[in-house]
């Protein structure tokens, strides 16, 4: 029983972590919590469905294509919902992101309909470990998520492009003074963020199914992960996601299955009360 809960907790949690990471990338770049991130997840899932079920492509290829499409959607989202308002108050941008969220939700309903859909798993079947039956899809999710996290880490920390993205995130004014076209750099960040979140949609769809409202719950749990992990911290977002996933599973099994969601918010509130800066402080302290 513990193994079972552990695996599903980690699998679901790591996905929350990945969505949270996408939100943190945008937050660090433009200082705005993107409340449409959950809908990137949903839309990515539908793209994967289109490639996998409607065009009959292999699931791994479909996930990659869906992720690229989502990247483009991310750039469009940046251009329409953020760029025009970048000089305005954060409130205005948050409201416009919420508007974009409605557009994505209802757009998905118009394109793909309102009946929930499913798509292929990366690997069918299940394996028995220590008396627990574990779906291969969960294992695949954990593996792919870890791989993506590693790739993002390498991209941001070890490459020149990553340095440029980070530089823009840390200081837009200065970036333009060293010759970086800020719109390109921020566009790339949105591309990356939406692509990452989009792939999660395709990974979750075979077990949780696609519906145009699936983004809301996932988005709010990713937000909880960010608060727990510490605003703006990438490792914090991932650890926060895992905590949310594990609290959900173990709390659901041992404390109350009815109040699973409530338990997450209890943990969230506890963090806000006793450790409001989250687990990880941002590595950048006050600018000296």
């Amino acid at each position: 029983m513990i193994v079972q809960l552990l695996v599903s907790g980690i699998a679901v949690g790591i996905v929350y972590g990945l969505i949270a990471m996408g939100m943190v990338l945008i937050f660090r770049a433009v200082g705005i919590m993107n409340f449409a991130q959950g809908d990137f997840l949903m839309f990515g899932g539908y793209f994967a469905y289109t490639f996998n079920q409607m065009l009959g492509l292999n699931i791994v290829l479909s996930l990659i294509l869906a992720s690229l499409c989502m990247g483009v959607i991310g750039v469009i989202f940046m251009r329409t919902s953020y760029w025009a308002l970048r000089g305005a108050q954060a409130k205005a941008i948050i409201v416009s992101a919420m508007g974009a969220s409605i557009v994505l939700k209802e757009g998905a309903r118009l394109i793909w309909g309102s009946i929930p859909l499913s798509l292929d798993k990366v690997k069918e079947g299940s394996v028995t470990v220590a008396g627990a039956t574990i779906q291969w899809q969960y294992v695949a999710i954990i593996g792919i998520a870890l791989l993506l996290m590693l790739l993002v880490y390498l991209l941001l920390e070890k490459t020149f492009v990553g340095n440029i993205l980070q530089a823009t995130a840390q200081d837009q004014y200065m970036s333009s003074l060293v010759g970086i076209p800020v719109i390109v750099s921020i566009g790339l960040t949105f591309f990356l963020s939406a692509a990452l979140t989009g792939i999660c949609g395709g990974l979750l769809a075979p077990i949780f199914f696609l519906s145009n409202t699936m983004g809301a719950t996932a988005g709010s749990k990713a937000f909880a992960a960010i608060v727990i992990g510490g605003f703006g911290s990438v490792p914090g977002a991932i650890i926060g996601g895992l905590i949310v996933g594990l609290v959900e599973q173990f709390g659901g099994a041992y404390i109350s299955s009815t109040y699973q969601l409530v338990l997450i918010y209890v943990v969230l509130i506890a963090f806000l009360m006793f450790r409001p800066r989250g687990l990880f402080k941002e590595k950048i302290q006050e600018k000296a």
């Binding site: 949780f208 099994a253 699973q260 969601l261």
Partner: peptide, 20 residues
């Protein structure tokens, strides 16, 4: 009698309880 909140997507917690 085990319940879950509407919108729950992963039922591992509920089903492990039920299996026991």
């Amino acid at each position: 009698v085990i319940s879950y909140t509407s919108g729950t997507k992963d039922f591992t917690a509920q089903l492990t309880q039920a299996a026991e």
